[in-house]
Design a protein around this nucleic acid. Sequence first.
DNA 1: ATTATCTATAGATCTATAGATAATGC
DNA 2: ATTATCTATAGATCTATAGATAATGC
Lengths: 241, 241
Amino acid sequence: MTTTGPGRPRKQQAVRPGATARDEILDAAAELFTSQGFANTSTRAIADAVGIRQSSLYHHFSTKDEILGELLGGTVSTSLAFARAVKDGSEETGQELDPAARLHAVVLFDGLQLCTSRWNLGVLYHLPEARAEVFQPFMAARQELRTIYGDLGRELTALSDADPGLGDTAFRLVESLINLRADGLIAMDSASTTADTVMILAGLRQKIQAVRDASSELISRYGEANRRGEASESALAAESA
Amino acid sequence: MTTTGPGRPRKQQAVRPGATARDEILDAAAELFTSQGFANTSTRAIADAVGIRQSSLYHHFSTKDEILGELLGGTVSTSLAFARAVKDGSEETGQELDPAARLHAVVLFDGLQLCTSRWNLGVLYHLPEARAEVFQPFMAARQELRTIYGDLGRELTALSDADPGLGDTAFRLVESLINLRADGLIAMDSASTTADTVMILAGLRQKIQAVRDASSELISRYGEANRRGEASESALAAESA
DNA sequence: ATTATCTATAGATCTATAGATAATGC
DNA sequence: ATTATCTATAGATCTATAGATAATGC
């Protein structure tokens, strides 16, 4: 809310980033939910962080749950869209994509989201409250992402003696970036070393540089298309890209 | 509370396992905190699950935080005691222990705790509430455990071309068992395949069976000693006070 | 007229304390 | 006398609703 518009003006001036009041609220809620938890964050605390009155939140969201739902959705949607694009990539172009590069790219892209987003939004998926019935659709989306990891892992290990559960292990390593970040232990290259670790598990230590290059190309191809078509998604998701 | 004793009898009969009322309360709190979160679990809900009145909790614990602290302490103490024992093992006996077996054993032991405990207590470490100042001693204990993983990893990779960050990766994989369990995806062998995965990252795929055997011996040696002296739980609680 | 804020508040919690009560054990 | 429960409640929340108010835009 930097420009004037319709509606009664705020008493306090806003300091939150965000194009709209709704975005400011989501940004404040993201910070508080990830640092203090959901049940432990009052609607008053969110409102205070935005510079509006507690009840004014309800002009933009009808319940507190709706705010969490919006954040959960924005968190998984970008990575899932990218993973889907990479998975379907071969079909569209007709040309076979390197299985190693595909898994590497998904791990790296997803990992980068988790490491560089303004707030540690991955934490939201580990909040016990997110397991509630109402958030089932978001957990299902995360489950689909996990399935794609598994499929890409099996494609990669089909012809080798590496563990066919590689994709699941990759998913676990990516998710653990959330915990690493929560403990303040994230480094600049945490996402890329995670992707490399997965490749070592695939038995590709020797070919790592070639895989990195091919992965990088996939990210610039599908990651870019992904970001373009996603302008309507929440401003938070855009920020993290 | 199966036997009669001093004190006014309960109106409701207890169905919780536990030698004492205090243990029943901890068991109920563990179930509720891990499934619904801390702030979202009322003292009334805990009391109902035990079969006593809400206020009766305060005869055994002076605050709700104290219950969480007790659970956090119990969760890390067993694994930490084992890891310390394995780390100091060479000094005591004078004989060098195989670095691969040591890391394998710590991963396997820690992983088994997380996979087989009655409730998914590892979740407690990921609760945003656990980050509060009062629980600092427990987070520090977990940090010490992480450091031992790192040290064991460097000992193992010192003479090879494997990633010296192996121990940190191992810690991440073990912790991800908590998420796996929360998602209902734990298998009988999740802990042991995790330990094997770490050995593959160390470049020891060929020697895996020998490492498993040596690891197994370490667990029966130090795991047993550890379980005997399991007053270490209260020792950790005393440390924090 | 529409929008976005505000004030005020209902009603439902929730934690912790005070003090009564009903057992056992000395 | 000690212990472990109980009843009752204070005081502090917290979510969501009702209705007033102050802007813009037609």
